[in-house]
Each structure stands twice: as C-alpha cells, then as structure tokens.
Amino acid sequence: MSTEPGDTLASRIAARSLAKREANYANEVRRLLDAGRVVMGRSGTTARPRVADIVAEAGLSNEAFYRHFPSKDALVAAILEDGTERLHSYVAHQMSKASTAEARLRRWVEGVLSQADDESAETTRAVMWNAGSMGEEIMSSPPSVAGRLAALVRDTYAELGSADPEFDASLAAHATIGKLSDYLWRQMRPTKSDVDRITAFCLRIRTP
C-alpha cells in the first residue's frame, strides 16, 4: 500500500504549522522593534533602556526577546535597519510626486531632513545615541543609511547630466545626512532657506 497520500497530508500539516510559527515570530519581532523605538524615545539620551524595559513595553518575555536577538545591541542594529527602510520608502514616495529631476532632488532633500521634524527628531536622536555604544561587529551588519538614500538619486544625477552619478549621489547623501545629524544633535529644525541651500549644493556637485 502506497504511503504517498499520508506523506502529502503530513507535509501540508507541517507546512501550516511552520507558516503559523513564522507569522507568530514575525509579530514578535515587530513588537520588539516598535517597543525598542518607543522606550528609547522615552529615555532620550540620558539612559540606555534595559532588555527588561523593552520586553515589558512589547508585552513579551525575555525568552521571546532572546529567541530573535542575541543582545540589546542586535536589537538596536535591527531598529536602525528598520528605520533606514522606512525612510527609504518615505523619501521614494515623496520623490515620485515630482516631474523633473531638479524637483525630485529637492523632494529627496526634504524627505531626508524630515527626520529632524519635531514629531520624529527625539526618537531618531535617541536611537542614534544608543547606536553609539554598539560594537564594530554589530555596526557592520545594518545597511548603510547613506548608501540606501544615495541609490534613490543615482538616476536623478544621471538625468541631470552627471558623468559619475554614483559618486555624486553618494556625496550628496553623506553631506545631507551629515547636516541632518547636526540638526538632530543641536535640536534644531531645518528652515525652508536651509532646504534651499542644501538642494542648491546637491545640484552643484554634479561631476562634469
């Protein structure tokens, strides 16, 4: 008697169980990422939160935390990566509203500097401060914020006539993120004039 039907049924049941576990684990990770961001924002730059604070905010256990992250530094790295992806998606959406290369570049500058707005600045500053204590091995794992944002304007620089759009996009990203960091640590919000000047700089750095 063939066992194939039973084996097929067993495989389907196992697949459903694995899918459910994967969904549960993904939910746990999201709750820990969001809780970590909330707790860091609440603590500011005066105290680094404990794992116990984060799992309490998430409504999870230490066991759940260490199932996904070997240390708090690993969680901070994941929060940085998650924030980079969120910012990348937001800036890309803002750029899609522009019809010219110049307008897309300005939208890009505005989107990057939006992290210094009152609503998000405190949390962004707190996450960056916590990241400052992370080891080199952990810091080398998240994707570069500048690299991800530079990729968004590489084609824009090519359209603007740059002979080396990749280099120019990277230079613009590092310069703009540097100014963003300055605004964050000085607890200042960029003005329209600031956005104008940074956009003008990014337009001037095109490689001839």
Rank of each mutant, 00 (worst) to 15 (best):
I13S: 05
A146W: 10
D182L: 12
I198G: 03
E85Q: 15
V51W: 00
I13D: 02
E81W: 07
A78T: 05
M128D: 07
S140T: 14
I205C: 01
A146K: 00
F69L: 09
G111C: 06
T176L: 11
T176N: 11
I138K: 00
E4G: 10
A173V: 06
R106Y: 06
E137K: 12
Y25S: 15
T123N: 05
G135N: 12
T3W: 09
A26T: 10
I54V: 13
Y90P: 01
V76M: 01
A103I: 02
E4A: 14
R154F: 13
P49K: 04
G178F: 05
K192R: 14
I54Q: 02
I205G: 00
R125Q: 08
V51F: 00
L87Y: 02
R107H: 12
G41L: 07
G41H: 08
N130R: 10
E81Q: 10
Y90T: 07
A78R: 03
W108S: 00
S120Y: 06
L160S: 02
Y157L: 15
A10E: 13
A116W: 08
Q94W: 12
T84Y: 09
C202P: 03
A175M: 15
A92R: 12
T3Q: 09
A126N: 10
T8Y: 06
A19V: 09
I79C: 02
E137Q: 10
